[in-house]
């Protein structure tokens, strides 16, 4: 192979695929064509962003976490609090919430990165439990079990006021999701991202070629924490309410489930998983308001048993054929 061949082979992972354009066009179409589903779309975008953040940690860097809600929750409370204190500009709120969550990620990364997978599960879980208990106790700050109320959020860019149908909220969350997805994609395709993927794949060899493993993992963990914090902030801003639920264990578990359904390590897994999860949740809770979780669980167990490739492989093949035929 020639120089040009090698250059192109190295550049291949960052080239945009047709499927990627299709995905984002479908999201845009959903927003344009289903205005009555804006609230659901907003929730999906937030869950997708949260799962994208976990994908950076789990799928790209290979760090298992059962406490990712710690960052989501801190971001939500931070955004809520500054909204309550009168700093109502939403984008500034997102940035501050992201910084706060990123700082927590940085501080706890030193605990998380030592030890084995099992230790990491324990430590991440513990950090999120500590955060939950803190939020529960600091009632003057968080409102405790009653939740944080009286959040005021201004218009986005001073122009787009949040409406009761969630049109602005959905557009806002989707745009933030898209921008942060671009950031994640850019990071993963940088030499930094390649090094992080190499560390996840073989830490022993990564160290033997001289990559400073701990430093790289601290960086990716902090960045992912900041993104999770921004996802939490989006929830606080678009619903103008924060409850202890944002830090609950089931949120960490749910985002892990969402990511695993969609597939780890290629950045779209969290987004695809979020779409699937929210659609199923929405449909099933319409059909059986009381037992939807049972059916949701059953479907996911079936998905695991049958295998994701077989479930998604068929529609993907059909789609490729349709695209190929045009």
């Amino acid at each position: 192979m020639t120089y040009e061949g090698a250059r192109q082979a190295l550049a291949a992972p960052r080239r945009w695929q047709t499927m990627e354009f299709d995905f984002w066009l479908a999201i845009l179409a959903a927003y344009a064509l289903l205005p009555e589903r804006s609230l659901l779309l907003n929730e999906t975008a937030i869950l997708g962003l949260f799962a994208l953040s976990l994908d950076l940690v789990l799928g790209i860097a290979g760090i298992v976490s059962l406490g990712h809600a710690a960052f989501f929750g801190l971001g939500a409370y931070t955004a809520g609090l500054i909204g309550k204190l009168g700093l109502t500009e939403p984008i500034l709120g997102l940035l501050i919430a992201g910084l706060a969550a990123g700082a927590l990620g940085f501080a706890t990364s030193f605990l998380v990165l030592r030890g084995s997978d099992l230790t990491r599960l324990m430590v991440t879980l513990s950090v999120s439990l500590v955060m939950l208990e803190l939020a529960n106790r600091l009632t003057t700050l968080t409102g405790g079990a009653d939740g944080l109320q009286g959040i005021v959020i201004g218009a986005v860019l001073g122009t787009f006021e949040f409406d009761m149908f969630g049109r602005v909220a959905a557009a806002y969350s989707l745009i933030i999701l898209f921008l942060l997805f671009l950031l994640a994609r850019w990071l993963v395709n940088a030499p930094f991202g390649l090094a992080v993927q190499a560390i996840a794949s073989n830490p022993l060899r990564s160290a033997a070629i001289g990559i400073p493993i701990t430093r790289r993992l601290i960086a990716i963990y902090s960045i992912a924490a900041a993104i999770a914090g921004i996802a939490g902030a989006l929830l606080a801003q678009t619903t103008q309410f924060v409850s202890l639920d944002v830090l609950a264990f089931h949120r960490s578990a749910e985002v892990m489930l969402v990511l695993v359904i969609g597939g780890t390590g290629y950045l779209y897994g969290g987004l695809v998983g979020a779409v699937l999860f929210k659609l199923l949740q929405d449909q099933l809770s319409d059909l059986t308001p009381q037992y939807w979780q049972f059916w949701l669980g059953l479907i996911f167990v079936a998905l695991v048993v049958i295998g994701r490739e077989r479930v998604f492989g068929f529609p993907q093949a059909v789609w490729r054929r349709i695209r190929g035929g045009v």
């Binding site: 192109q8 030499p191 400073p212 790289r216």
Partner: peptide, 11 residues
């Protein structure tokens, strides 16, 4: 010294 680079692309 480029393994932590963000703005560079190896290709």
């Amino acid at each position: 010294g480029l393994d932590g680079a963000l703005r560079q692309r190896l290709d």
